[in-house]
Computed example of a mutant assay.
Amino acid sequence: MRDRLPPLFSLQAFEAAARLGNFSRAAGELHLTPGAISRQVRQLEDWCGQTLFERVGNQMRLTVEGRELLARLGGPLAALHEAVYPEPEEAHTTLQIATLGSLARAWLLPRLHGFIAAAPTVRLIVQTDYALVRPPPRVALVALRHGRPEDGGEILFGDRLLAVAAPALARQLGRDATRWPAARMLSHVTGDAPLWLAAAGTTTAPAGPAFNDAAVTLDAAEAGLGVAVTRLSLALPRLRAGTLVQAHELLMPSPRANLLVIREDAATLPVVKRFATWLREEARQTSADLKAWEPA
């Protein structure tokens, strides 16, 4: 059989399943069903006369032969993809950044001038959306997310939870969270306010306006609509400017962190590596800034 090659699609299905360690994730990447991935892998096993995956409990693991084949396939498949889909020069100088609007406004945009000055030939596209869209292979895209570390991604910096309000409202309501009227407590629908409220000793459920965006929640607090429990990294510019003040002394670690997510096949692109290096340096400075806000 050495004078013929196995079907290319079977090789692609095997490489994706082996690289991602999961038939379902491979199916998502190739826009197939897990069953289709399984059939392609079985076809390749029949062609090679080798067992490439073995079932261990509910998981599929590579055999020795499977690991050896994966090591040999990566380079040739990448070269074939580049030969069939040559990338224009612009693809290497355009960087897409997928993130949340709140993270972009409070953290990324105020710092982005530094990267633009250091890399003036790179065109940036900032996409703010809640949906996690998987890009095509080898697209220069990075994602900045706020989530639990176990969700995946590189931790750039941790965060803290605190309550903030406009200065006049903070003076009016006082520092005792258990006495704050429910109607003057704002909600970010996907935030971690219940953790902070429990730690502050209040059982009052917020009954003020609710928002699905953390930055808009802070806009509402700044407008005097109520107290908002938020992340220190988002509130810090407004706290420094004095448009918001800390409404209660409790400052507690957040269970979520700010994460950098890069698709494996884009991690070696020069523009992605350059941006990631810059991003990590900015994150180190942010960690120091957040720590400096904590009481001695």
Rank of each mutant, 00 (worst) to 15 (best):
L70A: 12
L70N: 03
W196Y: 10
R25P: 00
V133S: 11
V84R: 11
G49Q: 02
Q127P: 00
E15A: 15
L234V: 03
E90D: 10
E282L: 08
Q59S: 12
H81R: 15
D151C: 04
F157G: 03
D129Q: 09
G153E: 10
R138I: 00
F115D: 05
T190M: 01
R39S: 03
D192P: 01
G35Q: 07
H92G: 14
A210I: 01
L100G: 07
Q127M: 01
W278Y: 02
L80I: 00
T128N: 15
S187R: 13
P295T: 07
A143R: 15
A292Y: 05
Q50W: 01
G74M: 10
G158I: 06
E154Y: 05
A104N: 12
R263W: 07
Q40R: 15
R171T: 09
K291E: 14
P137W: 05
A166M: 02
F23A: 00
G191W: 07
F275P: 00
G242H: 09
R4G: 07
Y85R: 13
Q43H: 02
T268P: 01
L290T: 03
A165W: 04
A27K: 02
R72V: 10
M60T: 05
T128R: 15
A165G: 07
G224R: 06
S10K: 02
S24Q: 12
A170M: 09
F115K: 00
L124I: 10
F53V: 05
T51K: 07
L109I: 05
R263A: 14
W196A: 12
P86S: 08
R160W: 14
A200P: 00
A182T: 06
G21E: 11
L186T: 06
R238W: 13
A247C: 08
E45D: 06
G152W: 00
F275I: 00
A220T: 00
T93I: 05
V271P: 03
R238H: 12
V133K: 07
T190V: 01
T277S: 14
G35K: 01
A223N: 08
P253W: 04
A27P: 04
L103R: 05
L100H: 11
R280M: 09
A210W: 06
I125G: 10
E65S: 11
P209R: 13
L70R: 14
A288D: 09
V261T: 12
F9E: 15
E87D: 12
H31T: 04
V41S: 13
A168F: 11
H146D: 10
L290G: 09
S254D: 15
V133F: 13
T121A: 10
A170P: 08
G21T: 08
V245T: 15
F53H: 06
A200F: 02
L197A: 10
Q43L: 09
L250Y: 09
D3I: 10
L162T: 11
S233F: 08
A104H: 11
L11K: 02
S102Q: 03
P270C: 02
R231L: 13
Q59P: 01
P167Y: 05
L124D: 06
P110I: 12
L162G: 11
F211E: 10
M60G: 07
P135Q: 10
R148M: 03
H113Y: 08
A182P: 04
L232S: 10
P194A: 04
V261S: 11
P76F: 08
E264H: 12
L112Q: 11
A119E: 15
G208T: 04
